[in-house]
């Protein structure tokens, strides 16, 4: 991440200078920083709502029930985590919310899952294998119905917007499975996590 951060910024400035867009690049620092804070603040309300709802789901045993239900699959994907841990239930809920295109719910639930995974992490500042797996599932962006894209198509008067659902689903399912396999391969061949900062608490 250090190299990526360095090169993104240095290359932007160099290329911006070549293209004569240096003023734009400098301006984008301000707008980008402002946008980040806007995004974070706009998340507060919906984040609080879903974290509250998910706490109820956890205390009522619903999350645990879902965890049990899907444990045959998650046992293999998240082998560091006990199969009936709330993390597993939250991961399943995160996946379902993503699949249904409920991004507003999926992100807070995913963060709840990350907090649960952090309890099993040996080093609280580096990502555990389970976290990388959850991120792989999320960055692959599996969803059953690409609602925003369809909305744009409807907006421009596309007569049959649902015809893109089948190809999108095909691509996204394939990518989702491949992402999980890639994460598993990395897990096997990347250097193991070293304990530098101690676990949670």
């Amino acid at each position: 991440m250090n190299y990526i951060f360095y090169w993104l910024i240095v290359l932007s400035i160099v290329i911006g200078a070549i293209n004569g867009k240096l003023p734009d690049v400098v301006n984008s620092i301000l707008t980008g920083a402002e946008k980040s804070v806007q995004i974070a603040f706009s998340l507060i309300g919906i984040m609080a709502f879903w974290l509250g709802i998910m706490k109820i789901a956890e205390q009522s045993g619903l999350v645990e029930f879902i965890a049990k239900l899907i444990s045959p699959i998650t046992k293999r994907l998240f082998n560091e985590i006990p199969p009936e841990d709330p993390a597993i239930g939250n991961i399943a809920m995160n996946f379902s919310a993503n699949a249904l295109g409920l991004t507003n719910a999926a992100t807070p639930i995913g963060i709840r899952a990350m907090q649960d995974l952090q309890k099993h992490n040996i080093d609280r500042k580096t990502a555990s294998n389970s976290m990388c797996m959850l991120l792989a599932m999320n960055t692959a962006g599996f969803q059953l119905i690409p609602a925003t894209v369809i909305a744009v198509l409807v907006g421009i008067g596309y007569k049959n917007p649902t015809e893109i659902i089948a190809p999108t689903l095909l691509v996204t399912s394939f990518t989702f499975i491949i992402a999980i396999i890639i994460a598993k391969i990395f897990q096997r061949f990347s250097p193991p996590q070293i304990q530098e900062h101690g676990g949670e608490e």
């Binding site: 993104l8 290359l11 400035i13 911006g16």
Partner: peptide, 8 residues
């Protein structure tokens, strides 16, 4: 944002 503004 910087990368996008640079035209890269």
């Amino acid at each position: 944002s910087m990368l996008r503004a640079s035209g890269a």
